[in-house]
Design a binder for these strands. Structure first.
Length: 426
RNA sequence: GGAGAGGUGGCCGAGUGGCUUAAGGCGCACGCUUGGAAAGCGUGUUUACCUGAGAGGGUAACCCGGGUUCGAAUCCCGGUCUCUCCA
């Protein structure tokens, strides 16, 4: 979330930036600043009351030690008024702090200066398109047909055992899945990202830290018995490693990666877009996360974009990169690049990666700082990106690399799968 | 699931309800000492907020949350985590 300090210092800039999201923050921010000024006055009064009350207590302590019980009793009688006063002030403080905190939680991150003011996905800016345009003539099977014919993925079996959106992968389909995960992890390893296998469930504190709670509560599977949530992305456990941590400046940038299944309720998604692998409740993803110094974080973002680019190049998939407009960006991001692969059979773009810089927005919620040489602490910048999300990559591989007799696995990937082709049944 | 023990600063570790934000040690930083190093000596070494031009001053925090008390690291209740034993 945004800090009070930043609202005090650059109120107008933040209001203007938030307008790119079509989020009118003026009223909320002015209210917050008002409450904050009350809060400071209240704290000054409270501190003063407690100081006086502490002084009396010390005096009583001294008298008791000297055995002057009667004098102590006299002073004791004076403390009651301070106690009443401090209790009241504490309640006021708490109320103001809660009010401020709640209001701050509902203000999204201020977009970076380069982000444009569009309203939705149509206003995103294409900043790159790969050269390898896919051409498919009469062999144009969508991936769900291929997956069924070749017995790679069984959607119906998943629907029986669990529900729609929880497919089984089998045979070469499962091996392709495993190969991709390993391939992505090896590339991340080469890129200097330390691999983690994190828990697949998280507590509410972690959900708050990365910004899934309270705003996107409905998107996560929740187990109220244990107050745990299924992770919607490895971003949550990986980034929360650094919750309540002060890192050493020399340790930055910190680079983490991890493969996890991701669980999303996808409430309200129906129809054509959810066919096959296009939208699932459980899917696999390799995620990369970085903690960076503020001055370096946009270079870091570029390097993460390059990393994802390298993966898509190696998989020989036609893709484009979009810089999201204000209206299409996630709540917590300051800048986001989406990667989309072209599905020749479906004739549409499929989002396979989202790479974002959150600047200090998550760091504030996480309380993650670093200490510089002069001993001062500063908020880190957090970033993350999918590298990559599997289902749509699988869809694009099956659809774009199909020919008369089957699917050709890209050269870079084949060693990880253990086969070079998936042949159609004869 | 049951029984017990425990959670104190970067780390180890002491702590009798008041003189304890916290002894002592280690580590770290700076200085002195030295030809140089080690040892030794000295000084410093948490975080957040409020206040102040600054020096500084104030408040809070000893796993978390409540409570008792003029006053809680210390006493009481609840939670949580770790360890040991049992199932």
């Amino acid at each position: 979330m945004l800090t009070i300090q930043s609202l005090r210092d650059e109120k107008e800039r933040i209001i203007t930036a938030l307008q790119k999201r079509h989020f009118d923050a003026r009223e909320a921010i002015e209210a917050i600043l008002e409450w904050d000024s009350d809060r400071r006055k209240t704290q000054a009064a409270l501190d003063e009351t407690l100081a006086q009350s502490n002084a009396l207590s010390r005096e009583i302590g001294g008298l008791m030690r000297e055995g002057k019980k009667d004098e102590a009793e006299v002073i004791k009688s004076k403390t009651a008024a301070f106690k009443v006063q401090s209790t009241e002030l504490k309640e006021q403080m708490q109320a103001l702090e809660d009010q401020i905190h709640n209001a701050l939680c509902h203000i999204p991150n201020a977009p970076h200066g380069f982000v444009t003011a569009g309203r939705n996905a149509e206003d995103n800016i294409e900043i790159f398109r790969s050269g390898n345009a896919a051409t498919l003539d009469h062999h144009k099977k969508p991936h769900w047909e291929i997956a069924e014919e070749c017995q790679l993925i069984d959607f119906e079996l998943g629907a029986k055992v669990t529900g729609a959106g929880f497919p089984f992968y089998r045979g070469k389909g499962a091996k392709l899945q495993r190969g991709l995960i390993r391939y992505f992890l090896e590339r991340a390893d080469e890129g200097g990202y330390e691999e983690f296998i994190p828990p697949h469930m998280i507590n509410a504190e972690s959900g708050f830290g990365t910004g899934q709670l309270p705003d996107k509560e409905g998107q996560m599977y929740h187990m109220p018995e244990d107050e745990l949530y299924m992770i919607p992305t490895a971003e949550v456990p990986l980034t929360n490693i650094y919750r309540d941590v002060i890192v050493k400046e020399a340790d930055l940038p910190i680079k983490l990666c991890g493969y996890t299944p991701c669980f999303r309720r996808e409430a309200g998604s129906y129809g054509k877009d959810v066919r096959g692998l296009n939208r699932l409740h459980q899917f696999d993803k390799v995620e990369v996360v970085q903690l960076s110094k503020p001055e370096a974080s946009y270079d870091t973002l570029d390097s993460m974009v390059d990393h994802v680019k390298g993966l898509l190049e190696a998989l020989e998939l036609p893709y484009r990169i979009l810089r999201l407009c204000g209206g299409d960006m996630g709540f917590t991001a300051a800048m986001t690049y989406d990667f989309e692969v072209w599905s020749a059979a479906q004739e549409r773009w499929l989002e396979v990666s989202s790479v974002s810089n959150f600047e200090t927005y998550q760091a504030h919620r996480l309380k993650c700082r670093y200490k510089s040489a002069d001993g001062k602490s500063h908020w880190v910048h957090t970033l993350n990106g999918s590298a990559l999300a599997l289902p749509r990559i699988v869809a694009a591989l099956l659809e774009n690399h199909q020919d008369e007799t089957g699917i050709q696995i890209p050269e870079a990937l084949a060693p990880y799968c253990g086969f070079e082709r998936i042949d159609y049944p004869t």
